[in-house]
Amino acid sequence: MIQVTNLIKTFKDGETETKVLKGIDFRVENGQFIAIMGRSGAGKSTLLYQMSLLDEPTSGEIIIDSQHAHAMTGDQKTKFRLVNCGYVFQDYALLPELTAIENVVLPLLMQKIDKKTAYAKAQEALEKIKLGHRLKNIPSQLSGGEQQRVSIARAIANHPKILFADEPTANLDNESSKIVMEFFLQLHKEGQTIIMVTHEEQYAKLAQKIVKIDDGKIISITENKV
């Protein structure tokens, strides 16, 4: 499903060049739940951003759902992300002026799904994650855990092929983190491909495969017996 070959990402700041990813080769199959781990600054989030088409690598190749990322225009990538990818960010990334259901329905409306169906799907996604009673609340009226669940509902509402999650539990308490991870496991059981960046080993262990990164390189890939 995703094939990453010799992926290099360099950041430039004036004369200074920092190589964050130093030739990553990596493959994710359909339905896999992958955890990317590493210490702070190891390059795990950068790898996720390249794989999820949110950023452009300096060199290397990404083939996602049989399409070459480098051959896509900006608009094509946006459309690809809309249809095929779901995103869960560390800081939830909800739009503050939209209610929970409006945050979830927005990408569905963008996919030209009719309004009634889109709202029904959004409600279904929120109910699935046990937020059916918070549809009309704006993010500032929700707890951190609830906001992250809205963010997950937005990511999965239209059944994307891949769910990308960047430190989804980093800002949450234990209770909320557990709820989020249990939901990820449920999604995985339903066949959802998930790529999650985390620095918390206890949650990484829930994934099928742990990819450890250090200094821009993969240092190990471990299969978990879940």
Partner: peptide, 15 residues
């Protein structure tokens, strides 16, 4: 940041 998020989740820049 929110404009970036919108683009990130697939909302067209023109919208």
């Amino acid at each position: 940041k929110f404009i970036g998020i919108l683009k990130g989740i697939g909302i067209n820049g023109r919208a």
